[in-house]
């Protein structure tokens, strides 16, 4: 079990970072995983082209919640250009687990939402 739910994933799941919404977000975007009905919304405050503040609201499994929580920590202070470079690998690296094709989408929905909000990119991250 520990190979699928590492301690850190469970910790982020139980105590998510940056959970909530922003009062007047510069960017807000929401998307769904039609496979399981999971949803994820990310709000951003952007200052000098950098992420100043980020909040998320998500419904989903431990993997998706933890991935979103970890992603928000990862992007604080990052430039939008740096965010554009984030890939599937970055998410899997922080999760530190391997996932099959179905559950991969649980992990990647947050990055899809982030890129959808900033750049209007609709594809699943690769």
């Amino acid at each position: 079990m520990d190979t699928l739910y590492r301690e850190e994933i469970l910790e982020h799941y139980k105590y998510p970072r940056n959970k909530g919404t922003l009062e007047k977000p510069d960017i807000t975007y929401k998307d769904f995983n039609p496979l399981c009905g999971d949803e994820c919304q990310i709000d951003l405050h952007v200052k000098d082209n950098r992420v100043d503040e980020v909040k998320f609201m998500a419904k989903g499994c431990a993997i998706s919640q933890a991935a979103t929580s970890m992603l928000t920590e990862m992007i604080e202070g990052k430039s939008l250009e740096e965010i554009k470079q984030l890939s599937k690998k970055d998410i899997l690296d922080v999760l530190g687990i391997e996932l099959g094709p179905v559950r991969l989408k649980c992990a990647l929905l947050c990055l899809k939402v982030l890129k959808g909000g900033i750049y209007g990119i609709k594809e699943w991250p690769t």
């Binding site: 699928l4 739910y5 009905g37 989903g60 499994c61």
Partner: peptide, 28 residues
């Protein structure tokens, strides 16, 4: 515990169950 997590843990015991909205979203 989210149904996907339940199903993922059950899979570790070789048990196949369905987790999700089972194509009845309005019912859920």
């Amino acid at each position: 515990i989210h149904p996907h997590d339940v199903a993922a843990v059950l899979d570790r015991s070789g048990i196949c169950v369905r987790a999700g909205h089972h194509c009845t979203q309005p019912l859920h």
